[in-house]
């Protein structure tokens, strides 16, 4: 097991490198002039050329790529933003926690609402309960998030004066953003829970459990849910990843200075260093989350745990 974890952790390094190279190459092809962005349109061509030289922008591609990779991965010197001159490492360290809290709370709401919805739908398959729950879930994915966000703010902040409309501070500042962002998650989780529960409910060991006289509630939670959990965990994991990158909209609306707004502003201003480092960090965090998801699989299903352990011992050929 430990070997498996270490292998996965080591694997993150080439992933990070790969992301770095890809994003760097992509952004290099951006048809924009960094000097013009920094100096503004009021600067002369001479001024811009001076700046370009000093920033090393006229060096050949591989030189710049090499410099970037050594700076980032060996010296951990993320440099400064081209546009704001803020230290990138500081910005990320400040902003990452906020995005994280937001993502986790959004995910928490999705899980707490989505899974029960899916269970109720599965139990009442074909009846009103099923239809109501799935209708609710489907309505969720159909409504654009930013729109729901503004509606929530108008209702809870302006009319009811219960929650703050924007900004950062205590936990209450994350409630509305989390509710606004959770609709997608609720829908996916409800759907996935419903379909895995349906598969499981029909299986033999459930019938056996019922025949043995186990309480229905226990049948559903202890036996059915536990076995249905694997695909659900997959959805939770991938959803977390999507949330991480997709928080930009919610952050913009609620004026939360997180990773999302950092990267959006950077992309819009072609602030290459920030986009590059930001992408790498997000990729690493995402890989880490997928590792945790895979470890959760092992915790839930001993067969999978055995599979991981055997993976380290001998290679299983495909086919």
């Amino acid at each position: 097991m430990i070997r498996y974890i270490i292998r996965r952790l080591l694997w993150m390094i080439p992933v990070a490198l790969g992301v770095a190279v890809i994003v760097f190459t992509l952004m290099t092809f951006c048809p924009s002039d960094a000097a013009e962005i920094i100096l503004g349109s009021n600067a002369t061509e001479e001024d811009k050329e001076i700046l370009r030289d000093s920033m090393g922008l006229n060096d050949p591609f591989f030189v710049r790529l090499g410099d970037f990779l050594t700076d980032t991965f060996i010296r951990f010197d993320f440099g400064k933003s081209w546009v704001t001159k803020a230290d990138i490492k500081t910005s990320i360290l400040e902003r990452m926690p906020r995005t994280f809290v937001l993502t986790v709370s959004t995910l928490a709401i999705s899980v707490l609402v989505g899974i029960p919805l899916g269970i109720i739908a599965a139990i009442n398959q074909g009846k009103l309960g099923d239809n109501m729950c799935m209708a609710f879930a489907l309505a969720g994915i159909s409504i654009p998030n930013f729109w729901l966000a503004l509606l929530l703010v108008i209702l809870f902040s302006v009319k009811l004066k219960l929650l703050p409309p924007m900004g950062i501070g205590g936990l209450e500042y994350y409630i509305l953003p989390a509710i606004a962002g959770c609709t997608n998650g609720i829908a996916s989780l409800a759907r996935q829970t419903r379909s895995s529960m349906l598969e499981v409910i029909r299986s033999d060991y459930i019938t056996t459990a019922r025949a043995k006289g186990v309480k229905e509630f226990d049948v559903i939670t202890k036996h059915a849910l536990k076995n249905a959990l694997i695909p659900i965990i997959t959805v939770v994991g991938t959803h977390f990843g999507r949330l991480l990158g997709g928080m930009m909209i919610i952050e913009t609306i609620f004026s939360i200075p997180g990773m999302g707004t950092l990267i959006i502003t950077a992309v819009n201003t072609r602030d290459l260093p920030v986009v590059q480092v930001g992408s790498i960090i997000l990729a690493i965090v995402f890989s880490f989350c997928m590792l945790i998801v895979d470890l959760l699989y092992a915790a839930v299903d001993p067969r999978i745990k055995a599979q991981y352990e055997s993976m380290g011992k001998r290679r299983v050929k495909h086919g």
Partner: peptide
């Protein structure tokens, strides 16, 4: 019949939310 309900309910919910803005 109940199956159709699902789609209709979903649309009603969506419409309800949208009209809520008004």
């Amino acid at each position: 019949m109940n199956r159709k309900l699902r789609a209709i309910l979903a649309m009603l919910l969506v419409c309800g939310m949208l009209l809520g803005t008004l």
